[in-house]
Design a protein around this nucleic acid. Structure first.
Length: 785
DNA sequence: GCCTGAATAGTACCA
DNA sequence: ACTGGTACTATTCAGGCG
């Protein structure tokens, strides 16, 4: 007897697969008793849609299509649905097909039928379509009716069920207690970068709730280590398997080694090996495979995208700091017993740090996943544009909108935000005023969307908003798709903020904050998304008009500030730096609200702020005593440590009122310390990213030369790698020379180069700006003659 | 062939 | 692999000079 029961189900991972000869969607997750369960949804059939051009010919078109399509795929099914495509109501044929190989043939068949448009939604992956077309949502709770699925063995779950009648999402944002396992891998490097064909894995360290473990290779053969690791994963059965650079380096390496050693890495819940998915990342069926490198890549403030930096950023680094570790030690280092012990201990530290970091990152990952419907293991790998797009696709589905196809398009440049030239020098008591969520609010207020755009030469019979540059018009009604989606996000934020105010527990609050952050990330990226030629909802006019309204808002706010008698020091896109006068700034905010219909606020107040001639660069001392440094060399990772330290020191002197003489002497002190050799090598290293294969560079840039030198020594340099290099003196002293920092140990640093090209220029720019800004001279100068 | 200024390449930043 | 605006250095190039 097969009884239907209702369960609560939290979705962790999903894939397409075959069960008992039937294609179905595999939904891996948990129930409320924290039992790991697998749901099989046999009711979903992949399909695509074709719009019918002439609504009066629906039945004849359908008849013709039916005839042709049946010949191609006996199992196909046709139906007609009314949808919207970029604002227009259309009838579309839905074609459910029996298997993927038939889809293309059905498209060709449909092409022979007159009156049909181009096929849509074939370019969306079936598992994502499943999520978009049903309420099933990753990292979310659902109610679902199930029956036991008998004869479904071989999966590492407590129960396998058939889902009946689909999943119904419940609003609960919480997550079940997930088991996490972190792993860290040390590989040998005979020379430079490890090569899977030659260099075995030396150590795999793991950390789970059951503690720390290391598997250690003896000799050349890492087969035992690989299979023990695999076995431990199955034994501990984690929901989350987390590493650092797993997608780009570790999984390919482990898989290659497993192949060489002829062992199985069948560590998934279906006993299969990790496999590379369409997004280029590695999936482990039934588990959530995470790469903290993607998490690091998402954090702007992180200058060095390493596990060590990330874990210290989130507050998960070991007490006492990390033991140093060469990720790929040489055979000699590995042979030394003491060195080996330290490598193992350092590797375990990193597994533990990855574990803690993962726990601290999970809330955000899960909220972003449930918001965008991208499975949690895809969502961090996916670029911003794809997160926005996935969210928009899910909104489109709930609104009955067809998903526009991805297209190849030409690129049209357009104007962006307005940046005002700063007043150089030091200013006191400056307020930074900014518009709240400027671009999203512009798009909502002026109904800016691809389908509300009035096409060129069309004569609208409705009221329109005309962009301030006069180039485009948007109808005021009905509400466009993007404004609708953005308003949904803003409503979501309001809801989250409201619940946060009445929340009792710390974990609950963390979840809400993570939700808020996820919503913010997506809503802030919608404007940029519309200007991306790869976007399904690309619309240059939308992007161009949004920035035009932005420029208009900021210039009008500038005029209003001037009218109120405020000094305008600087402004960039959605911010204005004005002299801080409590009453006048408050007036300004009210005028902006009343006259422009937008909200602005005083974001912060600087008791002192320094500008050079340059835009986008300044340093300020907040009224709370913190120093902000924006854009200047101090915050640029491609400047040497000494240069940055020197600039920071003089800025600190100036902002805290020590005066320029003190700043000059600080600078002199640093210059002499360089000459006297009292500065460590690490402060001379210049770091730059290699952005493309070395052969594609057209000029002999220093970091490229350094990268080439590394490559000659056996390192493999790939796009995205940061190269550190040092300028050293050559024997003939005529010119300085570039040396990769790994090879610079016993070289003589070219101190004069660093003083001349690194330390002095950024500091001089600041000092000059301060000194040039003459105080009003009492008598003649500055007068009108 | 050497010097110089302008143009270009390349990177990382701000919003 | 979301956008445009910006600063900055080093290299490369074009042209003057002699």
């Amino acid at each position: 007897m097969n009884l239907t029961t209702r369960i609560k189900f939290w979705l962790l991972d999903l894939n397409e697969g075959m069960s008992n000869g039937q294609r179905c969607i595999f939904l891996w997750g948990m129930d409320t008793d924290a039992r790991r369960v697998l749901l099989l949804d046999r009711d979903f059939r992949a399909s695509f849609l074709i719009p019918i051009k002439d609504r009066s010919r629906v039945s004849s078109v359908l008849k013709q299509l039916n005839e042709l399509a049946t010949k191609v795929d006996q199992g196909m099914e046709l139906s007609v649905e009314t949808k919207r495509l970029l604002g227009r109501e259309v009838d579309a044929v839905r074609i459910k097909y029996s298997d993927a190989s038939k889809a293309e043939k059905l498209v060709s068949a449909a092409k022979k039928v007159k009156g049909l448009g181009a096929a849509l939604e074939l370019d969306v992956r079936p598992t994502l379509l499943y999520l978009l077309e049903t309420e099933a949502t990753p990292c979310s709770w659902h109610d679902v009716d199930v029956t036991e699925a008998e004869g479904s063995e071989g999966y590492m779950v407590s129960s396998v069920y058939y889902a009946k009648g689909g999943l119904r999402r419940s609003g609960d944002l919480s997550s079940p207690p997930l088991r996490v396992m972190a792993f860290y891998v040390v590989r040998r490097a005979t020379r430079g970068t490890p090569e899977a064909r030659r260099d075995p894995v030396l150590v795999i360290s793991t950390k789970s709730e059951r503690g720390v473990n290391s598997f250690i290779t003896k000799g050349e053969d890492d087969a035992d280590v690989l299979s023990s690791f695999s076995g431990l994963v199955r034994k501990h059965d984690p929901d989350v398997l987390v590493g650092f650079r797993g997608n780009s380096i570790l999984w390919p390496y482990l898989i290659a080694r497993a192949r060489i050693s002829e062992v199985s890495l069948g560590l998934s819940r279906a006993m299969t090996e990790p496999h590379q998915s369409a997004f280029g990342h590695f999936s482990v069926t039934g588990r959530l495979s995470l790469d903290l490198n993607d998490v690091a890549g998402d954090i702007q403030e992180l200058e060095s995208k390493t596990l060590e930096a990330l874990s210290s950023y989130v507050g998960a680094s070991p007490t006492g700091g990390f033991l140093p570790l060469d990720e790929a030690p040489t055979p000699e280092a590995w042979t030394d017993r003491a060195a080996r012990e330290e490598i193992i201990r350092a590797s375990e530290q990193r597994a533990e740090a990855a574990y803690d970091t993962c726990l601290k990152s999970m809330d955000f990952i899960m909220q972003l996943s449930s918001l965008t419907k991208l499975p949690a293991d895809h969502v961090m790998t996916a670029a911003v544009g794809f997160r926005v797009e996935s969210y928009l696709m899910s909104v489109a589905k709930t609104r009955g909108e067809l998903i526009p196809p991805r297209e190849d398009r030409p690129y049209y440049p357009y104007a962006g935000g307005l940046v005002l030239s700063p007043a150089p020098g030091m200013h006191e008591q400056i307020a930074v005023i900014d518009f709240r969520s400027m671009y999203p609010n512009i798009m909502i207020s002026f109904n800016v969307s691809p389908e509300t755009l009035v096409k060129a030469h069309a004569r609208p019979d409705k009221e329109v908003n005309t962009s301030p540059d006069g180039r485009h018009q948007f109808v005021k009604e009905p509400q466009g798709f993007l404004p609708f989606a953005l308003q949904g996000l803003i409503a979501e934020r309001k809801k989250t903020e409201a619940s946060a105010s009445e929340v009792k527990s710390e974990p609950e609050l963390r979840v809400l904050q993570a939700r808020d952050k996820a919503v913010k990330v997506v809503s802030n990226a919608v404007y940029g998304y519309t200007g991306w030629p790869g976007a399904r909802w690309y619309c240059m006019e939308v992007a161009e008009s949004t920035t035009a309204w932005g420029r208009s808002l900021i210039s009008r706010a500038t005029e209003m500030a001037a009218h109120l008698g405020l000094d305008i020091i600087y402004g960039d896109t959605d911010s204005l730096f004005v002299s801080y006068d409590k009453r006048k700034t408050s007036n300004l905010l009210h005028s902006i609200d009343r006259e422009l219909g937008f909200q602005a606020r005083v974001e912060k107040v600087y008791s002192a702020v320094v500008f050079t001639e340059a835009k986008k660069r300044y340093a300020g001392l907040t009224v709370h005593g913190e120093i902000d440094i924006v854009g200047l060399e101090v915050v640029r990772s491609d400047w040497s440590g000494v240069a940055r330290r020197a600039q920071r020191a003089i800025l600190s002197d100036l902002l805290t009122g020590k005066g320029r003489d003190a700043a000059r002497s600080t600078l002199d002190g640093i210059v002499s310390s360089v000459r006297s050799g009292n500065v460590p090598l690490s402060e001379f290293v210049l770091w730059k990213t290699i952005s493309r294969p070395l052969s594609e560079y057209t000029v002999r840039a220093p970091h490229v030369e350094a990268a080439r030198a590394l490559e000659a020594k056996g390192w493999s340099v790939r796009p995205g790698d940061k190269i550190g290099y040092v300028m050293v003196t050559t024997p003939d002293r005529a010119k300085s020379q570039v040396i990769p920092y790994q090879l610079a140990q016993n070289q003589s640093v070219d101190y004069e180069y660093y003083i001349r090209e690194q330390v002095l220029p950024p500091c001089e720019r600041i000092l000059e700006a301060i000194e040039k800004k003459r105080q009003p001279v009492p008598h003649d100068a500055g007068g009108h003659g």
